[in-house]
Write a protein that binds this DNA or RNA. Structure first.
Length: 478
RNA sequence: UCCCUAGUAGCUCAGUUGGUUAGAGCGGCGGACUGUUAAUCCGUAGGUCGUAGGUUCAAGUCCUACCUGGGGAGCCA
């Protein structure tokens, strides 16, 4: 008999149908005559209730059916006598693929803290919460490729190992095959990288953007979607040492086109989640509602699905940096001295400022543009005012900066001058500058932190809970 | 990296101004009972109190250092 996924059984199964299902036991409830097994195979958040007659299968077999044991079950679908489900499976044959010792299996049929499950990240997929998160994560990854493919973008694979450290996006992880103890030294007493694998210092990438620009200025519209590495000692709920980033880069796009794309893209993903992941979203939403009950009234946040719909239905606010500074300086917290950090033109906005703008003032996602050039990267297009650059940051409630992007400086002379001002080595970047020497065009792009977006889409609070195997300072288990 | 906070049973926690043999609920195990829904009821096992020092007649409790988790900040996506 062909095995059916539990999702297929629950959505399309007919009473009287003979089926074969395979999966893992979520819970078993025993009694004298009959056992109830909640079986889950990962295809859906919902379990299939299996009814096993004690006399038919015997105590010994049923004794080995514990939480997380792997089973194959053949039987007939019947209308359920219980109230929790419409259909259930009356077992006629049970195969135990793998037992699960209940005294040793760490995940119990009870609520666990996310911290505990993080320490058992190898098994947390077997919980309802994490299976939901990772199904949604998959759906979002798929939707990202679909979105760009449908729009005629090409998926460009930029390198993981790079010799460029010019972007200054953060501390990098060194890639080397030289011995860690007593590496070869040159005449100056420094490590001799000419003897290293690549004959020069190399690192794990912090961004595929610069290479993305090379692709965009020939293929037109490209995007990258790959792992990115930052060796920053960041210990927060929003940072990982290894995370995934989506970086579209488009020729002939100016800042406004870039903003339009970013907003349309985010809304597409949210719509895709609402259309395709509703069971999982409902589960996560209920879970969050339970947690919210323990919080004081004023700290409660909007219900998850409502929040997703809200973002979908409202235009993002577009606001210049200069306007944002005015708003902040006229705000109550500023006048009452509640902000910890100063607010004046030229400073980089702090979390507290961004949160005020997004959560208190506009109460919608905000795209901030035209930042002072001194707080942004060298490659951003310099505006005519001589003070600002065509940068854009998309700010989301709770998460903060979810997208950072800009129109790029396409003028060779302006770019070189800016690089020199900011001590970016122009000689090492000859290949990048060639895009401006040969057929340069206005172009723009942005980077979306995949995990930060998944935080928003799932309502989870810690970035370590939306990536399967989180890499953070002092933690590379599994 | 900085500030705050926590580490006691498999999990979530309680443990008074330092004072006998460190507790509960859940989970596990055994039994009873029942078409059950995180079942219910009865019973039972299970702990070097994060690690290393120190103070004291006496430390889960006080002090110091370190490790790890959580929250916030910085850096950023």
């Amino acid at each position: 008999m062909k095995r059916l996924k539990i999702k297929e059984v629950l959505t399309g199964g007919q009473v009287g149908q003979q089926v074969l299902v395979k999966g893992w036991v979520r819970t078993k409830r025993g009694s004298k005559n009959v056992n109830f097994i909640a079986l889950n195979d990962g295809s859906t958040i919902n379990n299939l209730q299996v009814v096993a007659d004690v006399e038919k299968f015997g105590e010994e077999l049923l004794h080995n059916i514990n939480t997380s044991a792997a089973l194959g079950i053949t039987g007939e679908l019947v209308e359920s006598m219980g109230s929790g489900q419409a259909l259930e499976l009356v077992a006629s044959e049970i195969t135990i693929y793998g037992k699960s010792d209940p005294e040793k299996y760490p995940i119990q049929p009870k609520k666990h803290s996310l911290e505990f499950l993080r320490e058992n990240a190898h098994l947390r997929f077997r919980t309802a919460t994490f299976s939901a998160v990772f199904r949604i994560r998959h759906a979002m990854a798929f939707a990202i490729h679909k979105y760009f493919n449908d729009k005629g973008f090409y998926y460009l694979h930029t390198p993981i190992i790079t010799a460029s450290d010019a972007e200054g996006a953060g501390q990098m992880f060194r890639v080397s095959t030289l011995p860690a103890v007593e590496p070869p030294l040159n005449e100056e007493g420094e490590i001799d990288y000419t003897q290293d694998f690549f004959g020069r210092p190399t690192n794990l990438t912090v961004s595929g953007q610069l290479e993305g620009e090379l692709g965009a200025t020939a293929l037109g519209e490209v995007y990258t979607f790959g792992p990115t590495f930052r060796a920053e000692n960041s210990n927060t709920t929003r940072h990982l040492a290894e995370f995934w980033m989506i970086e579209p880069e488009m020729a002939f796009y100016e800042l406004k086109d870039n903003m339009d794309l970013a907003e349309d893209f985010l809304k597409y993903l949210i719509r895709y989640a609402l259309d395709n992941c509703m069971d999982d979203l409902k589960f996560l939403s209920n879970r969050l509602q339970q947690e919210e009950k323990n919080k004081p009234q004023d700290q409660r946040s909007m219900e998850l699905i409502e929040k997703l719909q809200f973002v979908l239905e409202n235009d993002f606010i577009r606001c210049t940096y200069t306007e944002a500074i005015d708003i902040l300086r006229n705000s109550k917290p500023f006048k009452k001295g509640k902000f910890q950090y100063p607010v004046e033109w030229g400073i980089d906005l702090q979390s507290e400022h961004e949160r005020y703008l997004v959560e208190k003032h506009f109460k919608k996602p905000v795209i901030l543009i035209d930042y002072p050039k001194d707080i942004k990267a060298f490659y951003m297009k310099q505006n005519d005012d001589g003070k600002t650059v065509a940068a854009m940051d998309v700010l989301f409630p709770q998460i903060g900066e979810i997208i950072g992007g800009s129109e790029r400086e396409s003028d060779y002379d302006k770019l070189v001058k800016r690089m020199e001002e900011m001590d970016v080595p122009t000689d090492e970047m000859w290949w990048y500058l060639d895009t401006r020497r040969f057929g340069t065009v206005p172009h723009a792009g942005f980077g979306l932190g995949f995990e930060r977006f998944i935080l928003f889409a799932t309502g989870m609070g810690n970035i370590r809970d939306v990536i399967a195997f989180p890499r953070t300072p002092k933690n590379a288990e599994f």
